[in-house]
Amino acid sequence: MENQTSILNLTEEEFVHPGNRACSGCGLSIVYRTGLKALGKNTILVVPPSCLTVLQGLYPVASTKLPCVNVTFASTGAAATGVRAAMRALKKADVNVVAWAGDGGTGDIGIQALSGACERGEDIIYICYDNEAYMNTGVQRSGTTPQGVLTTTTPIKGKLQEKKDVPAIIAAHGIGYVATASAAYPLDFYDKVKKATTLSGPRYIHVHTPCPPGWSFDTRYTIKVGKLAVQSGLFDLYEIENGEFRLTGASKNLVGKARIPVTEYFQTQGRFKSLDQEIIQKVQEQVDAKWARY
């Protein structure tokens, strides 16, 4: 996919009110604002408990100018199914039904409902923002926390297990569109969401969202940290369209070029400070082996 949108032609229409309850430097708030621009007005959102619930504000004030139903943690994929079923039953075809959930809400507690929706071929867009831990409850490990990361439930040794590859699991359902993106490249994310709105069936976008308090870095470095994750080859931007994999954007530009060592990415964040040399070496080898296949 070639990027089509630039900051010059990005729509000025906003669907997120300023002054919402996100932390400063929040990667989610970047992609939420950008993603809703891509989705446009004719959209219904489905949101489980997550940082987004907080970002959206406390009753009776809401920060989102789109209809949104808050649902239980494990039910997002099924709830989006229900909205779409109602749209069909009520003959309201031309609506984007969009689930927007965190990594724990997607890859851990929500994976059953999401898997069911993918298997049934539900006509929904599912956006997972991946800040790599349970941030809303105060930085506990999730299945998508990388190995070695310090969280409040892996407080001394860091997480022992590797990160669960959720987009690969979703892609294994054989759905038509799976993409990854990063808050550090919001226009690439915009274009992927926009593209998803032109397709039908289950569409899944997994977006990496750096989290200053959870990852322990200064709020001004959100974009820098996000870019390092991509440029070190750890988090790759790609699309899998009808089974065909291709790197996109900044990741595509890395092919055949020297990548930044992963340790430079690790050094930007306090959450990696207990990483030993052995794990750093292993991760670098894994990244090198992955890129050798690209």
């Binding site: 099924a78 229900g82 909205v83 079923a85 109602a86 409902a113 069911g116």
Partner: peptide
Amino acid sequence: AAEYIPVESEHSAMAVCIAASTAGARA
């Protein structure tokens, strides 16, 4: 004339009903 959703669990069955009802359909 209804949508029949063969969900993967009872938790999801009620999730579908909740969302569909919130959208204005008889569930």
